[in-house]
Amino acid sequence: MSHADDRTAVALADPLGLDRLQTIARINMDRARDSEERPFWKQIAAVAAIVMMLTPLASLVWSHGNRAQTLLMG
């Protein structure tokens, strides 16, 4: 089975709104030939998914923190 290289994975991920790192990790996990390499890429994909979920929350907390600081200082 042929798999996309990393550059192609990014080109596919962007228009579909998928996370680049997670897409690359999943393709590399499928492409991995040995049992040691698969868990590595599976972990990278999982971390990318967690980061993707937490990024909007961190942004929200950061923006509220800046507003609170402005109110207190200003």
Rank of each mutant, 00 (worst) to 15 (best):
L71D: 06
G17Q: 13
A68S: 00
K42H: 10
L71P: 06
A32T: 01
L57H: 12
R26A: 04
N28Q: 06
G17L: 11
D14S: 10
R33A: 00
N66S: 01
W41G: 12
A49R: 09
A13D: 01
L72W: 06
R26I: 05
R26T: 07
R67A: 02
P15R: 04
S63A: 03
A45E: 04
V51G: 10
L18H: 14
S2D: 10
M73A: 12
D34M: 03
A11W: 07
W41A: 12
M52G: 15
D6R: 07
W62Q: 04
P15D: 02
S59H: 05
V47H: 13
L57F: 11
A68I: 04
T55A: 11
A32Q: 08
D5C: 01
A4K: 08
S2N: 14
A68G: 00
V61E: 15
L71S: 03
P56G: 03
D19A: 03
A4V: 12
T23N: 06
V10N: 03
Q69D: 05
A13M: 00
D19Q: 11
L16E: 14
A48M: 01
D14M: 13
T8P: 14
D5A: 06
D14T: 13
A9Y: 00
A58V: 09
A13R: 02
H3E: 15
L54D: 09
D14L: 15
R7W: 08
M29I: 07
L18Q: 08
T8N: 15
I27F: 10
I50M: 06
T23H: 00
E36Q: 08
W41R: 11
M1A: 04
M29C: 06
A11Y: 03
S63Y: 04
Q69L: 01
A11D: 13
V51T: 08
A25E: 15
M52F: 12
A11S: 04
A49G: 09
S2W: 13
E37F: 01
I50K: 07
L57I: 15
E37S: 10
A48E: 00
D19I: 04
A68V: 10
L18N: 09
G74R: 05
M53L: 11
A46P: 08
L71R: 02
L16D: 02
R31W: 06
S35Q: 12
I24Q: 06
I50Q: 07
R7H: 04
T55E: 12
T55M: 15
R67T: 02
V10D: 06
I50W: 05
I24R: 01
A58Q: 08
L54A: 06
T8K: 15
A68M: 02
A25I: 02
A11F: 03
K42V: 09
L72E: 05
T8G: 14
E36K: 03
A25N: 09
R26N: 11
M52H: 14
R33C: 00
T23I: 05
R38C: 03
I44D: 07
A46L: 14
H64P: 02
N66A: 10
A13I: 02
D30A: 05
